[in-house]
C-alpha cells in the first residue's frame, strides 16, 4: 500500500492547506469541526442534568408543597437545616455507607476471583463463562430484586426450607423482619447483580499485567501468593481503582432494590430512597430537593476524594492516553 502512495504522490490529508498561515487556519477549522460534532452531545448532557440540578438547588430554598401551591415561600437554608439535624438523614446515610462498603468490598474479592477463573479457564469454556457472567449484569435491577425477595420471603421462598440446617435459620425465619437480615438480602441481590461488571474490569486489568514479569517472578521462585501480591495486583492497580470508583458511586445511589424489597421498613432507607420519599411520596418539593442536592454533593465528594486520595488516573478511565 505504501508503494502506491509514493507512486500516486498526491500528498496526504483530505484538506489541502495553502502555504503561509495554513497551520493556524487548519487548527481553527479543526476546532470548529470538533465542536460542531461534539457540541450536540455536550449540550444535551448539560440540558438533562445541569438544568435539573440548578432547579433542585433553587427549589431547595423554598417551602413548597405540591398540594399547597398558594403558599410557596422562600426560607433560605432552612430545609438543609431540617435535613441535617434530622436523625433519619443520618440513619439513611449510615445505611447507604454500610451497603456501599459491604457490597463493594465483597464484590471486589468475588470479582477478582471470577476474573482469575475466567483468565485461567480453558479456551473452550471461556465464551460460556463470559455469557453466563453477563447475564446478571444485563438483568434488570428490579427483576433481580424481586427474584431475591421472593427467594427469601416467608410464603413464596425456598431459602428457609433449603438452609434450615444452618444455625439461625428456621422454617419461619423472617428475613425482612429485621434491619440486618433485610440489609443482608439487599446486599446479596446487589452483589449478585453487579459483581460481573467489576470482574470484567478486573479481567481487563489482569490481561494488562505483562507475562514477562510473571515468568520472571516464577523463575525467582516466588509462590503464587507472592506473585499475586508483588506482581499482579500492583500492575493492575489502575484497573482496580477505576472499578472501585465506579462501583462505589453506583452503590451509593442504591434505590431500586430497597424500593422493591423493603420499601424502607426497619431502617433500611438509603439516601436516594429518602429523597424519593420526601419529593414523590410526601410531595414536599422543597425538602426533597434539599435531600437530592445533599445526595448529589455526597457523590461529588466521594468522587473527588477517590481521585485525589487514591490518585485514580481517570484519563485511563476515559480512554485517553
Amino acid at each position: 500500500m505504501s508503494t502506491t502512495a509514493v507512486e500516486s504522490g498526491t500528498g496526504s490529508g483530505t484538506t489541502p492547506t495553502p502555504p503561509g498561515n495554513g497551520a493556524s487556519d487548519r487548527a481553527r477549522a479543526e476546532q470548529r469541526l470538533g465542536w460542531l460534532l461534539a457540541g450536540p452531545a455536550f449540550v444535551v448532557m448539560l440540558l438533562v442534568t445541569a438544568y435539573p440540578i440548578a432547579q433542585a438547588v433553587y427549589y431547595s430554598l423554598f417551602d413548597y408543597r405540591l398540594t399547597d401551591q398558594e403558599n410557596i415561600s422562600f426560607i433560605g437554608l432552612n430545609n438543609y437545616a431540617v435535613v441535617l439535624t434530622d436523625q433519619i438523614w443520618w440513619i439513611s446515610f449510615a445505611v447507604t455507607v454500610f451497603i456501599t462498603v459491604v457490597t463493594v468490598a465483597v464484590e471486589l474479592v468475588l470479582g477478582f476471583a471470577l476474573a482469575l477463573v475466567m483468565m485461567n479457564a480453558l479456551q473452550a469454556i471461556r465464551p460460556v463463562l463470559r455469557a453466563a457472567i453477563l447475564i446478571p449484569y444485563a438483568v434488570i435491577t428490579v427483576v433481580s430484586a424481586f427474584a431475591w425477595q421472593y427467594a427469601f420471603s416467608l410464603d413464596s421462598g425456598f431459602v428457609n426450607s433449603w438452609f434450615s440446617w444452618l444455625p439461625g435459620i428456621a422454617a419461619d425465619t423472617d428475613w425482612f423482619g429485621g434491619t440486618y437480615t433485610s440489609l443482608l438480602v439487599i446486599c446479596l441481590a446487589e452483589i449478585w447483580k453487579t459483581t460481573p461488571f467489576i470482574s470484567l474490569l478486573l479481567l481487563a486489568g489482569l490481561a494488562q499485567v505483562p507475562d514477562v514479569l510473571q515468568e520472571a517472578a516464577k523463575v525467582d521462585g516466588a509462590t503464587w501468593w507472592q506473585r499475586m501480591r508483588k506482581v499482579t495486583i500492583p500492575n493492575m492497580k489502575a484497573a482496580i481503582m477505576v472499578a472501585l470508583l465506579f462501583r462505589t458511586l453506583d452503590a451509593f445511589r442504591v434505590f431500586d432494590t430497597v424500593f422493591v424489597m423493603t420499601n424502607g421498613a426497619n431502617n433500611t432507607e438509603t439516601v436516594s430512597f429518602l429523597a424519593y420519599r420526601q419529593t414523590i411520596a410526601r410531595v414536599e418539593i422543597g425538602l426533597g430537593s434539599a435531600v437530592s442536592v445533599l445526595l448529589f454533593l455526597s457523590v461529588v465528594i466521594i468522587c473527588v476524594g477517590f481521585i485525589k486520595g487514591f490518585k485514580v488516573d481517570l484519563s485511563q478511565a476515559r480512554g485517553e492516553n
Binding site: L154, D155, D172, T173, D174, F176, G177, A265, N266
Partner: peptide, 15 residues
Amino acid sequence: GGPGFSTASEDENSN
C-alpha cells in the same frame, strides 16, 4: 402473632 408478624400483610395472614 405468628412468625413474620412484622412483615405480615393481609395476604400472608389469609394464608
